[in-house]
């Protein structure tokens, strides 16, 4: 049986809100140590992996490992109308493993609303161990998420693709659209400690800007973001979420190649 309790303004729900423009259904695995969510967008281009340890929830109990397909879009929609100080309880039982129950309790505890959401069947993807994947990359850029968001905002003025390339002591973002082009050079400063650009080998990736903007939305929940690039491989965007937590989110984005 799984039971977890959280307040509406919680990290988990804020992250779910932020990823909904990419995915509406997700594979959620729960164990005694925490919750892992994995989801692929409908086009099979972007993958999201979210890890939230048990202690991040107001209450968390899972006595048996569970894996379920959840329509997170429907779940978030059900929770949206709850009062901001309301308490949300999510339950899944072994006896009836066809749905989950989402209960919303008002702050005064005088009103309880329960939703029963049917579980969905999902294709599961075998993604290699992500930490190992990060070590193999040609270039990594650790940067404040505000910088990443600002660059994505600049890029969103140009409708099209973005080329991310390594340059001497830095990285370059280049977007070419119908109305013109945009070029951002992001260099390793001499003194800043929150920027770390490491290049093992030159690399250039072309990516769909629409996905980059979705990634920027989640990075708003984190102070730092890490981009890892390797020739001909998916871009990896990694964020630790919140302060003093071990929660993290990882995105993979398939590149565009010469047609």
């Amino acid at each position: 049986m799984l039971e977890l309790k959280l307040v509406k303004e919680s990290l988990f729900l804020n992250v779910l809100e932020a990823i909904l423009d990419l995915v509406a259904v997700a594979s959620v695995s729960c164990s005694s140590t925490g919750l892992k969510l994995q989801a692929m967008d409908a086009k099979g281009v972007a993958f999201i992996s979210l890890l939230i340890p048990a202690k991040e929830f107001q209450f968390y109990h899972c006595d048996k490992d569970l894996s379920m397909g959840i329509a997170i879009g429907d779940m978030v929609e059900a929770i949206r109308s709850a009062d901001k100080d309301g308490t949300i309880t999510i339950k899944a039982s072994d006896e009836n493993f066809r749905n989950i129950t989402v209960s919303i309790e008002s702050p005064e505890c005088n009103e309880t609303t329960s939703f029963s959401l049917l579980l969905v069947t999902l294709k599961r993807f075998c993604i290699p161990e992500l930490q190992g994947l990060l070590k193999k990359y040609d270039a990594c850029v650790q940067m404040p998420s505000v910088d990443f968001m600002r660059i994505c905002k600049y890029l969103s003025n140009v409708d099209g693709d973005v080329d991310i390339s390594t340059i001497d002591k830095g990285i370059r973002f280049f977007a070419l659209g119908k109305c013109g082009c945009l070029n951002v050079k992001y260099m390793q400063p001499e003194k800043a400690t929150d920027i770390d650009i490491s290049v093992q080998a030159p690399v250039s990736l072309t990516l769909d800007l629409k996905y980059m903007n979705s990634f920027a939305k989640v990075s708003a929940l984190s102070n730092q973001v890490k981009l890892c690039l390797s020739k001909g491989q998916p871009l990896v965007v990694q964020c630790k979420i919140g302060q003093k937590t071990k929660s993290r989110i990882i995105y993979l984005l398939a590149p565009k190649i010469k047609g």
Binding site: M40, V45, R124, F125, C126, T206, G259
Partner: peptide
């Protein structure tokens, strides 16, 4: 022109 790849080209499906 550029062609969008899919993640399934990099990772296997279960």
């Amino acid at each position: 022109s550029r062609k969008q790849t899919k993640l399934s080209a990099f990772f296997s499906e279960k």
